[in-house]
Amino acid sequence: MPPLTRWFIKSAFIFFVAAMAVRVLQTAGVLTDLPPFINALGPVYFHMFLVGWVTQLIFGVVFWMFPKYTQEDPRGSDRLGWSTFWLINIGLGLRVIAEPMNTLNPDTGWGWLLAISAILQWLAGLGFVINTWARVKAN
């Protein structure tokens, strides 16, 4: 398994556990009053689960198992692959902090971090598509 795949999958596991933990915290609201930050994590939970866990796991496995690009560069561009990894993790990480903070404190600058998070994740998606496209080929 290539190093980039290991990083994708281990990061995916971290988001998986974190998403489940957020779900527990949100459910704990039936027992006690929750800090406003926890209550504002609703959209973040879905994206930790679907982007951080599911999509990132797919990215890692695709990078590992899909047909070779060429004999010299079997997995396409390593640099683009690593860029995708950092862009999606920094982008989603920023979202985890900035989205609830922006909800609780609108017009205080958190919105800019949210916008940066959007751009980073969008670039990660495009990077993955560009690096994978040529590896999806008929025999």
């Binding site: 922006n102 971090l113 949210l114 959007a118 751009i119 495009l126």
Partner: peptide, 17 residues
């Protein structure tokens, strides 16, 4: 995936700014 991330990115950007 490209379309979905683009639409999601636009909405998230718009949520911030």
């Amino acid at each position: 995936l490209s379309l979905g991330f683009t639409f999601g990115g636009l909405m998230l950007f718009n949520k911030g700014i």
